[in-house]
Design a protein around this nucleic acid. Sequence first.
DNA 1: ACCCCCATTTGAACGTGTTCAACTCTTGCC
DNA 2: GGCAAGAGTTGAACACGTTCAAATGGGGGT
Lengths: 233, 233
Amino acid sequence: MCRVDQPATTPSAPKGEQTRALILETALRLFQENGYDRTTMRAIAKDAGVSVGNAYYYFESKEHLVQGFYDRMVALHREAVAPLLASEPKFAARLDGVMQAWLEVSEPYHEFAAQFFKNAADPASPLSPFSDESSPARDAGIGLMRSVLLGSTAKVDPELREDLPELLWLYQMAVVLFWVHDKSEKAAKTGMLVRRSTPLIARLLQLSATRVFRPLTREGVQLFRDIGWFTSK
Amino acid sequence: MCRVDQPATTPSAPKGEQTRALILETALRLFQENGYDRTTMRAIAKDAGVSVGNAYYYFESKEHLVQGFYDRMVALHREAVAPLLASEPKFAARLDGVMQAWLEVSEPYHEFAAQFFKNAADPASPLSPFSDESSPARDAGIGLMRSVLLGSTAKVDPELREDLPELLWLYQMAVVLFWVHDKSEKAAKTGMLVRRSTPLIARLLQLSATRVFRPLTREGVQLFRDIGWFTSK
DNA sequence: ACCCCCATTTGAACGTGTTCAACTCTTGCC
DNA sequence: GGCAAGAGTTGAACACGTTCAAATGGGGGT
């Protein structure tokens, strides 16, 4: 009828996008209700009122459906963290706040998340934080750590300063790995780990510029660079 | 004919053990030839001349078959490392030697190993190095690191000394995680990481007993203990 | 010799993620 | 309106890991 197809911008999505969104929403709801493993592709398709094959028309695999969930958590985290980053000047408090916010945002999905964060260690999985497919999310995470650093009053060896956001992001990945294994009530152990490790990191950063430490810092940074992060060869 | 069945000690194993060994050998051979994912349980059973169900009578799952492979690598590693541990007194050289030996032992299985080391991050997998099922292998690994430390002339803050083997084992796990993602020729990047990071660790240990550092060391060690390693709650 | 018990073995069947040839519907063009 | 082309959709079929009720077999007690 009156539908002209503007390639973009139109709120009435190009038909296919509606189906895609419907499938994604259904999948995320079922994942949350029943967990990742117990949610079958057939159940997702049935609940969304489409066929199994149709789900595969829009998403390469069951894992790819999870990317949408991951993106949502990143958005929630960024939102939750904005006020803190705008007001708090102390580095340790900023880092701690960002990490605690992540824990709070993720808490409701702990069980579900643990089921697919195992992909983190699988180099072949598109969900690995080191994969090409994850590079937008990875860059966003590193960017967040950069703003944690830049907005702070911390004094760091300038050589280290450049690579610090990536290193802090790695710290976050390590915490996530610990969190995945954390069976304590409301992940209290991970909370403690963050609360007590962030001041240690801050203190290490102070020391990094010290005369005794600088050579060690330099050598560590140089090694980190030579290894070449997520460069394939 | 002349086979009498001594319940134990006899080289002719108690019948069932023979089948078990046959299945395991076949599985490991096929894993090595075709990779983990491309080797089906049906193929293993067929090649071993038994039924699929029989394989499951002896091994809970496909993953459990891999434990045998893992045990074998641990044995090879321990063997390869013995002369060095008997002769070399310097801590950094001992640690480097142990890690390099691991890389050499594992190199032929890099591709295959990467396919199942993803389970490392899956808390639910019996193959996770943090799982109960892995505690023998874990204890062996930690014990190896203890002998790396004890046989050396390194001077470490006694408080740290006690927990250091576990921490070094964690270092090893981190290296393994890196190795799994390492696509460089013969894992050269991991080799470099080890060669250059072990001296840094040794230097950090020296510093750990320093007046400036000791408080930081103490706090770190205390945090490590409070977190309570692989204690479930 | 007989029989019973239980370790061992079987293979068909189940539920899963994934694929694919075929079908239907929409869209743009005459 | 009619028509070709391609986007969208279908569900049966495949390969896999896993389960299980049933068959087999051998060894010890009588």
